[in-house]
């Protein structure tokens, strides 16, 4: 703990708060997909900046951890950098951009491309934890619906999608059923990432403003909702990455000049960079890239 600023408790939160959050996490792990209420604390950053994820990360972090933060797959956005710095300062933990080396990964909007393993923890920042919210505004009612497994409404939303667009157009925050029981909002990750949620790592979800924590233990069954005649399709842009040539990764479309030129690049910058370092090249990669 040498690098730790003595003005802070380890990882900013006091031990009692961490215990409260850990209890919520354990309850969440015991009942996968169930939204556990917790007393969210004021954090030195605004809501919408991942205060729920930050509190969860703070509660699970130990001095030996190596911490990685991604925002839309990138380690270098303002949001990701400030959260990473926050824990460097308050917990003195090592940080990394390498997915494979990280023990705790906090994320907004993506699951890393590299398969996560046992011993890793993926912490999601969640804006709206309630998947039924947009059709049923009453919190009392949605809680009952979860308790009684009344999930017809979720399919009404998918029905509306197909009726309006000819296909299920929900591309982010695509609802899933967990272990055949709770319907869960996977946070605004692209549906492309949904199949990855059946993984070896622990997944924890923190919603700060809404004061909810939920969780998926390793190897939990996670099924994306659909219709028999409109099955779930985790599609992505039909294009390889222009920098590393990957055909299996989620791509961002990037405008590259004023003439409307554009390219597709991996949203996971660590994945893309590692591939390029290993000699993989996409169509628009500079020939001499290191």
């Amino acid at each position: 703990m040498d690098g730790q600023d003595q003005a802070y408790n380890f990882a900013y939160l006091d031990e009692q708060t961490k215990r409260m959050i850990r209890r919520a996490i354990l309850k969440g792990l015991a009942v996968p997909g169930y939204q556990v209420p917790f007393a969210s604390r004021e954090m030195p950053m605004p809501y919408g900046w991942g205060t729920g994820g930050v509190q969860v990360s703070a509660a699970v972090m130990v001095p030996e951890d190596r911490f990685k933060v991604i925002d839309q797959g990138a380690d270098d956005t303002t949001n990701a950098v400030s959260i990473r710095k926050f824990f460097e300062k308050t917990a003195g933990v090592a940080v990394t951009e390498r997915t494979g080396e990280a023990t705790v990964i906090q994320t907004r909007h993506r699951i890393p491309e590299e398969e996560l393993g046992e011993g890793q923890v993926l912490v999601y920042q969640v804006p709206i934890p309630e998947p039924l919210r947009f059709l049923e505004p009453s919190e009392v009612e949605t809680r009952k619906m979860h308790a009684l497994e009344e999930y017809g409404l979720m399919h009404v939303k998918l029905y509306e999608d197909i009726a309006r667009h000819g296909a299920i157009s929900t591309a982010y925050a695509y609802p899933v059923k967990v272990e055949g029981r709770y319907v869960m909002d996977p946070s605004p990750i692209p549906k492309f990432d949904n199949p990855k949620m059946e993984m070896a790592a622990v997944q924890l979800f923190g919603a700060g403003r809404e004061q909810r924590i939920y969780a998926l233990p390793p190897y939990t069954k996670v099924v994306s909702l659909d219709f028999e005649d409109h099955p779930f399709d985790p599609s992505k842009a039909d294009h390889p990455c222009d920098l590393c040539g990957a055909e299996d990764s989620y791509l961002d479309e990037v405008i590259v000049d004023d003439a409307g030129g554009r390219m597709f690049v991996c949203s996971d910058t660590d994945y893309c960079g590692t591939r390029q370092a290993n000699g993989h090249r996409g169509a628009l990669a500079a020939e001499d890239a290191a």
Binding site: L135, H155, V156, Y159, D229, H230
Partner: peptide, 21 residues
């Protein structure tokens, strides 16, 4: 805020209908 079809279909989906057509 749900279409006429969705309104009629809700009870069907509530009891397990999973075929859009």
């Amino acid at each position: 805020n749900v279409s006429a079809g969705g309104n009629v279909g809700e009870r069907l989906m509530a009891v397990g209908a999973r075929n859009y057509g």
